[in-house]
Write a protein that binds this DNA or RNA. Structure first.
Lengths: 148, 148
DNA sequence: TTGCTTGCAAATGATTTGCACTGCT
DNA sequence: AGCAGTGCAAATCATTTGCAAGCAA
């Protein structure tokens, strides 16, 4: 196990601990599987990656981890939800989504551009009485495989 | 009926006609209801707005209209999908989403900023072998009502 | 007549939950 | 002992689909 993964598991354990919840073997396996991917993962993919996990408990653990701020649920147009580690554990990024097959890849934008966006978003939110939170960008396209 | 709405219904009829489908009363009612809102609408809201529409037919009509490029399905974290008119009928915009109640409002960004984004997205897509399509941005926050 | 539409009822399928059991602490 | 976590099976619920009847070209 690398230092980076020590840090990740430590953070996950701490966030669960704050809520009187345990960092069990199954939860650790889920976090490890999410960390091993560079893109959001569906539940079936997760179960395939870590055989032995039960479907219902994995759904429950993902919900628990989401509540604790370790995992983020990514909604997509496909049939399954996708899951990834929370942004503050992996860094701010966005998604490149294939409109044909639903594949998702992570993308990072130039920090200067992100700053411009934050400014524009703050203005838009303020104008409507919203308290600004984060933002997420989906870039839509067709992946190499689907372009044929 | 205004000139703008004539144009809208004409475009909808044309796109359905291209696919050998009819612009029926029900479909016209759906399009009119979507046009009457400035934000994406859920199916229950649609049925409330236009009593008499049946649930299954409305789902089917929304799918038909989506295929024809008249309607766009907006996925959200809530329990219902949201629907809005296709972008080329209403203009390019993004969404301000309340993380507590799921309310969505439309937002437009400065055209210069959109151009910067397009450039960055084109580069990101090209680097990964994607053919670039559109993009959608969700600005997350808490609406006035949920801030209490 | 031909075939798109419609509405009802029934099916589908991802996600959630009830419950009894296991295992930390 | 006490309570969080687990897995199985059953329930939930938005959305989809089969089917028979209605309607437009």
């Amino acid at each position: 196990m690398t230092a980076a993964s020590d840090e990740l598991h430590g953070a996950a354990a701490a966030r669960l601990g704050d809520r009187e919840q345990r960092y069990t073997t199954n939860r650790r396996a889920i976090v490890a599987a999410l960390a091993a991917h560079t893109a959001p993962v569906t539940l079936p993919e997760l179960l395939r990656t870590k055989p032995g996990l039960s479907q219902s408990s994995t759904y429950r653990n993902l919900a628990t981890l989401e509540d604790a701020g370790v995992v983020r649920r990514v909604v997509s147009s496909g049939e399954h939800a996708h899951f990834e580690l929370a942004e503050d554990l992996t860094g701010h990024h966005h998604h490149l989504v294939c409109v044909d097959c639903g594949t998702i890849e992570d993308v990072t934008l130039d920090p200067a551009l992100e700053r411009s966006l934050d400014g524009a978003f703050a203005a838009a939110a303020a104008a409507r009485g919203f308290e600004l939170g984060g933002h997420s960008i989906d870039i839509e396209g067709r992946c190499r495989a689907c372009r044929g």
